[in-house]
Design a protein around this nucleic acid. Structure first.
Lengths: 105, 105
DNA sequence: ACAAATCGTAAGCGATAACTTACGGTAAGT
DNA sequence: ACTTACCGTAAGTTATCGCTTACGATTTGT
């Protein structure tokens, strides 16, 4: 249902870089921003988009806020692509068979 | 390697609608455009983007051009999301274990 | 209590993207 | 040969997006 926001969120390279940094586990905003070519507020805005898309979870921890990848959000996208892949493969096989029939005649 | 273009291409709802129409098999541009809320040149431009992203294949067939989903392009994205899902799950499990340890003390 | 750190939000700006209309080019039908 | 159908491309416009700077709120440390 909401995989649309997830795929739109992952379309941006900066947001993918953020996601990549969170692959090994949760991080506060400062650590995510460290070494990034954009400002910290920009990172905050991207984190907002990723959270709204269901790709990240936020857990306030004292002074800081820990962001982590939400497996469920990623799985939504995965399922969409899986169904697309199934249909694409079936259509591909059907087309190949069709052409083989046409050539053998 | 080139899944970046693919995910950017699929971020647009109109392009996803085009992809959905091709799930059952190849179609010419006119059939893809039928009933769509945008102009036919717009569809052509979207088809161009999807082709450049490796998500579609084109086969000129007489007067028309048949577009079909390229399974390989879809698979590229699938693999990216699979690896992301693996890491996200691992990190999630690790965090849960960590927290359980902290609570049990 | 005061200062420093961490983070989100508001406002504004420049670039990009999606769309339209108009046009050209090639293949099929008469 | 001429017309019609099918499709891609060019030019221009409008809206959206990603970014920056500036500011406010909350929490930690002294």
């Amino acid at each position: 249902m909401s995989y649309e926001y997830a795929i739109a969120a992952l379309a941006d390279p900066t947001r993918r870089a953020i996601i990549d940094r969170l692959r090994s586990g949760a991080l506060p905003v400062g650590a995510i921003h460290d070494g990034m070519p954009v400002s910290r507020p920009a990172v905050s805005q991207h984190l907002r988009v990723l959270s709204d898309a269901g790709l990240l979870t936020v857990t306030p921890c004292g002074n800081r806020r820990l962001y982590a990848i939400a497996p469920e959000g990623v799985d939504n996208l995965r399922r969409y692509l899986d169904s697309l892949w199934d249909d694409a493969l079936a259509a591909f096989a059907r087309a190949a068979e069709e052409q083989a029939k046409g050539n053998s005649k």
